Amino acid sequence: MLDKAFKNRLHSKGCILHSNQGWQYQHRAYQETLKNHAIIQCMYRKGKCLDNSVMETSLAY
C-alpha cells in the first residue's frame, strides 16, 4: 500500500495516514517508513470506534 502511495504522490510531507492498531501498523519498520516520508500516523484508540467515524465521515465530502 505504501509503495503505491509513494509512486502516486511524490510529496507526502504532512499527509495523515489513519489506521487501526493492527500489529503491522505498530511495527517499527512501518513507522520508520512513514517517518522517512514525513507522514503523520493516526491510529484510533482501542475500544473507541467513534474515533474512526470522524475520519470515515470526512472522506465522504
Score class of each variant (00 low, 15 high):
Lys48Phe: 03
Lys13Leu: 11
Gln24Leu: 11
Leu10Asp: 07
Ile39Arg: 01
Leu34Trp: 11
Lys13Tyr: 12
Tyr30Lys: 01
His18Gly: 05
Asn8Lys: 15
Gln41Glu: 03
Leu50Arg: 10
Asn36Val: 05
Cys49Gly: 02
Ile40Ser: 10
Gln21Phe: 00
Lys13Thr: 14
Ser58Asn: 03
Tyr25His: 06
His27Pro: 00
Asn20Cys: 09
His18Gln: 13
Glu56His: 01
Cys49Arg: 09
Asn8Pro: 06
Glu32Ile: 03
Ser53Arg: 08
Lys4Trp: 13
Leu34Thr: 05
Gln21Glu: 07
Leu2Asp: 11
Gln41Pro: 02
Cys42Met: 04
Ala5Lys: 12
Arg28Lys: 15
Leu17Ile: 08
Gln21Ile: 02
Lys7Asn: 13
Lys46Gly: 04
Ala38Asn: 11
Lys48Glu: 09
Asn52Gly: 02
Lys48Cys: 07
Lys4His: 14
Thr57Tyr: 07
Ser19Trp: 09
His37Glu: 06
His37Pro: 03
Leu17Gly: 05
Asn52Pro: 01
His27Val: 09
Ser58Arg: 10
Gly47Tyr: 04
Gln26Gly: 02
Asp3Pro: 01
Asn36Phe: 07
Arg45His: 08
His11Asp: 15
Met1Asp: 15
Ser58Met: 09
Gln31Thr: 13
Leu17Thr: 04
Arg9Ile: 14
Asn52Gln: 09
Leu59His: 14
Tyr25Leu: 09
Ser12Pro: 06
Gln41Phe: 02
Ile39Tyr: 06
Tyr61Gln: 11
Ala60Cys: 01
Gln31Val: 13
Ser12Tyr: 08
Asn52Phe: 05
Gly22Ile: 06
Ala29Glu: 12
Ala29Asp: 12
Tyr61Thr: 10
Tyr61Asp: 10
Gly14Ser: 08
His11Leu: 15
Thr57Trp: 03
Thr33Val: 08
Gly47Ser: 05
